[in-house]
Design a protein around this nucleic acid. Sequence first.
DNA 1: AGCTCATGGCGAG
DNA 2: TCGCCCTGAGCTG
Length: 269
Amino acid sequence: MPEGHTIHRLAADYRERFGGWPVRASSPQGKFADAAALLDGSVLESTEAHGKHLFLGFPRDEWVHIHLGLFGKVDFAAAPAAPPTDTVRLRLANAESYVDLRGPTTCALITDGEKAAVHERLGPDPLRPADDGERAWSRVSRSRTTVAALLMDQKVIAGVGNVYRAEVLFRHGIDPYRAGRDLTRAEWDAVWADLVALMAEGVRLNRIDTVRPEHTPEAMGRPPRVDDHGGEVYVYRRAHQPCHLCGTEIRTAGLAARNLFWCPGCQTA
DNA sequence: AGCTCATGGCGAG
DNA sequence: TCGCCCTGAGCTG
């Protein structure tokens, strides 16, 4: 279940285990069989992530474009490869490892030009070192749309999903329903910088932790706790529970077909 | 066995 | 805004 940090982590993991050498490619499920047959035996030359999009680079400027969507999963394991289940869209394997991709929204063989078009329609990614928040600010600062919706719009900023959205707004005390154009430059700069740090930490730990050291259960003298999704958070999926900081009941509401979570006590400005 | 829900995104109306 | 696509876990019966 992927936000941008997962995809960047996958790019590194595919590179580490399979980069620079020929790979066996197959599609046990069959939906990617023709492309897998074409790629079988060729060298995985590079890997790249932009937001929630993953690209595996092969010779002749061909790329496997992967988007996990809401359900997609990638599992790495040591050789010998187990018999695949019938939902494995793409399996790569070498002498040491194999990796199975299941349930992606997208798994397609594309050209350099098609890859460029994907980058074109994505906003800056806090995890891409060359990107910065300036382009995002130019859209946010002119938009009447809520900041909650803007953060989920991949054309505005790439890689933020429902967890980082909820958590970064909490960490900055920003009411999710404020219009983008009502944010100050300083607020946006702080949000961007925080996403850069939070998401980098997400890549490192392979999970989303957003609770500041001074707010951990230990620091606050409370029993240890891990939230449903496997990390420690302030508001995500904590509807109707008390805010860790002010005790106000966390609220939830639908916004653009997703569940939004926030603390009305802490997120006012 | 069937239902619901999930860290996403697209296209039709 | 809604329906739809992708899969699997965790319920309920």
